[in-house]
Design a protein around this nucleic acid. Structure first.
Length: 344
DNA sequence: ACCTGTGTTGAA
DNA sequence: TCAACACAGGTG
């Protein structure tokens, strides 16, 4: 019960300390320059001379007996464990992330202090603040922080004009600038049982050129939708009807998006060198959201449960009062099941 | 048998 | 607050 003080109310109190700018981010930031050579000692690092306490040069990092590195941060007289890592720097980064979530942007870090000047850092700061401390800690312990961050970037800044929360800031393009290639209002047959979308010839040849003339019987194209989901369609030219079509995979898209005749599908491409393709859909005279909110029997995931945490709650606590449950407690519970992921 | 993360303590 | 040290329990 004593853990109840770990809630989020402490976001601004850091300012009371108001550390004058004495912070010296340089203190331990040398890693890149000279020192990094000797870190070869890895798992089983006791090969040197029996058991040595390396005593990390990074804040918040503690050596583990097996040569790995633990990361921890303190709050309210209590240690918050941030996980164990193979590399000392990984552990240090974990601490950095945690300390910036716990104590704000001007906390002392091992590496970069996440400046507000960089767009990337701005985004990461927003990401940090959008998650509870416990969630961040959970990500660190599971080594999923970077993935989650990237995922979030894709969702919010993927370049979809209407998707980014921050689009009003004109701050998009962070990730990948993209341009619209073309749109098409789907015909009844495009959304029927034919499992194909006809792409007007001129648009097809302009934007999706088929290599080596025509003979290629299909080219698999990947398109990412607004949710970050990747759709793979077979793209080919039908001599019989002299038309370019998306076939295999198309009906699934129609079904999941609830596309109806008259709706608009639009194709986009990143302007970068990678030429990532994107697809979006919107209702005839409505928004994207309207489509996905239609009473279409939603996505079947074959029983796979995407949300791990709730499932773990159930596992650990049965049906006991979940509402009062503190996330820290949940953390303790779930970690024990997730350690498996760490193996590397 | 091995490893992680906690208990604990003294120093900063 | 912090890290060193020791080790109880969990994990494979």
């Amino acid at each position: 019960m004593d853990r109840s003080s770990t809630d989020e109310s402490t976001t601004t109190d850091n300012s009371t300390l108001n550390l004058p700018v004495t912070k010296s981010p340089e203190r331990q930031c040398r890693v890149g320059s000279g020192i990094s050579v000797i870190i070869d000692a890895e798992v089983g690092g006791d090969a040197e001379s029996g058991r040595k306490r390396p005593s990390s040069r990074f804040k918040g990092v503690v050596p583990q007996p097996n040569g790995r590195w633990g990361s921890q941060i303190y709050e309210k007289h209590q240690r918050v464990w941030l996980g164990t890592f193979n590399e000392e720097e990984e552990a240090a980064r974990a601490y950095d992330i945690a300390v910036q979530r716990f104590r704000g942007g001007d906390a002392i870090t091992n590496f970069k202090p996440l400046s507000e000047t960089t767009k990337e850092d701005e985004i990461e700061t927003a990401f940090l603040n959008a998650h509870s401390k416990a969630e961040i800690v959970d990500m660190l312990r599971k080594h999923t922080y970077n993935d989650e961050l990237e995922q979030s970037k894709r969702r919010n800044y993927g370049g979809w004009p209407a998707a980014g929360i921050f689009s009003s800031l004109g701050a998009d393009r962070t990730r990948k600038a993209q341009e619209q290639l073309f749109e098409k209002a789907v015909t009844p047959s495009d959304v029927g049982k034919l499992n194909r979308l006809v792409i007007p010839k001129q648009l097809a040849e302009k934007h999706f050129p088929l290599k080596s003339g025509n003979n290629s019987y299909g080219l698999l194209l990947n398109f990412e939708d607004m949710g970050g989901k990747v759709w793979r369609f077979r793209y080919s030219y039908w001599n019989s009807s002299q038309s370019y079509v998306l076939t295999k995979g198309w009906s699934r898209f129609v079904k999941e998006k609830g596309l109806r005749a008259g709706d608009i599908v639009s194709f986009h491409s990143s302007t970068g060198p990678d030429k990532q393709l994107y697809i979006d859909s919107k209702a005839k005279n409505g928004s994207t959201a309207e489509i996905s909110n239609r009473p279409v029997p939603i996505i079947r995931l074959f029983g796979v449960n995407i949300f791990e945490v709730p499932s773990n709650i159930g596992t650990c606590y049965g049906d006991k009062r979940l509402r009062e449950m503190e996330f820290w407690t949940i953390l303790e519970c779930s970690n024990k099941k997730q350690r498996v992921i760490d193996a590397k």
